[in-house]
Every structure is written in structure tokens, then in C-alpha cells.
Simulated scan of single mutants.
Amino acid sequence: MRLAELTALLHLASPALPIGAFSYSQGLEAAVEAQWIGDTGTACEWIENGLLHVLARGELPFIAHQFARWQRHDAPALMQADREFLASREAAELRRETEQMGWSLKQLACSLEWGDAARRATLERLTPLSQPTAFAFAAAIHEVPVDAALAAYAFAWAENQVAAAIKAVPLGQLAGQRILVAARAVIDRAVARALDTPPERINTFSPMLGVLCARHETQYSRLFRS
């Protein structure tokens, strides 16, 4: 990988990227409320299961196929796949989250004039837009390897989950870093599984996650938006 590609991935995976990821927990806060997560071990288990059984079967292979569609600039396929992904969100909060982050990343990409005008025009026409499709656009136009793009997305997700766990459980900073170190090998497995998943086998079937996210909408005390 060239240094320019690595720098682009570091930018896209940075928690400082202004798309609002820090304000979401994706069900983790509800899991803490339900006492499924209460210490480092259960937080680590939650995050590793999320990587292997949620992202690796859903968002990561979806990004890989959207990445290829952006490379070909297959606008009809991009739009149809994005509509299907948005329809797969199990709870209102998850739908609003991906749409808000997708919109924010789109505004950033267009303002910075990433990619060619034709692809940016397609990106602008995607309304609403999911975050994975916007991320696939950003990764594809920076010409990064697809496996590295998936690893960056997965690590950013895990890092955000750790940040949420540090606040919500709560955990110490060192415990959070231990979880991230343990997640490295899990991310490798998740990326390999995602790259081996054809479009027709992508699924987001995680019923208890959906239940927790739906419960979060009416949770008495909340730090996060999902």
C-alpha cells in the first residue's frame, strides 16, 4: 500500500472525522442497561461478536460490493443496493444513524471534491444515503485496497464501541485498549469472512440487537443517540 493510501485510510477511520460517530453506541448502551455488559470481559465479548456476527455478515461485505460498484460506476446497482441496505435497519435509531452519518460523509466528500465529478454527482443523487455506501465511495476514489478499507471500517467501529463502553459501563482507558488489541485478530477474521460473502448471502439478521436498539428509544437515561 502506498503512503498516500494509508494516510487516506487513517483519515477515514479517524474518530475526528466530522460525521458524528461519537454520538452513537449502536445498541451497546441498551445492552449495559439490560445488564448484558458490565465489565471488560462482557464488553469485549459484545464487540467481538459484533465484528464477527454482525459486521462480517452485513456491513463489511456490503461495503466490499459497493466499493466494486463505485469502481465500475454502476449507478443503478449502487442505488438499488443502498435502498435495500437502508430497508434492512432493524430499528428507527439505526436507520437514522446510518442516514445521518452517510449524509455527513457525503457533504464532506463533495465539499473536499473527492473523486471525479460524475461519481460525485451519483453520490449527491443518493438521498437518503447509508454510511457504508458513502464510506465505500470514499475508499474507492482514494484507490485503497478493498481489504484494507474493510479493516479500517471495522477498526473505526470497534474503536467507537470501546469509547462508548468506557463511558457507559464504565471502563478504564487501559481496559479499553486491551479490548482493541484483542480485536485485531477478530478484525482479520471478519474481513476474510466478508470478502468471501457474495451479494446474495449478505444479511443483517441480529434479532436481539434489533430488540435492544428498539428499547433504547425509550430508555430512561441515555448518553448516546442509538
Rank of each mutant, 00 (worst) to 15 (best):
G41A: 15
R96T: 03
Q66W: 11
A77H: 07
N49A: 11
Q71D: 12
M101W: 03
T98N: 06
I47K: 07
R95C: 00
V54F: 05
P76D: 10
N49W: 06
E59Y: 04
L108S: 06
T98W: 01
F67W: 15
M79R: 15
N49L: 12
A109T: 08
W114R: 12
F67K: 03
A87D: 14
F62E: 09
Q100Y: 02
R57V: 11
V54M: 07
G115W: 12
F62L: 14
Q66P: 02
E93V: 12
E59D: 11
M79N: 04
G102K: 00
H65I: 00
H53T: 02
A91C: 10
T42E: 13
P61E: 05
G41K: 10
L86V: 10
R96N: 08
A87I: 05
R72A: 15
C44E: 15
G41M: 08
R69G: 02
Q71I: 04
F62I: 02
E59Q: 05
M101R: 15
G115L: 06
Q66V: 11
E90Q: 12
R72C: 06
L94W: 00
C110P: 10
H73I: 05
G41Q: 14
D82P: 02
E99K: 01
Q66C: 13
R72Q: 15
E99R: 02
M101H: 02
W46T: 12
P76M: 04
A56H: 08
R95D: 00
A64Y: 14
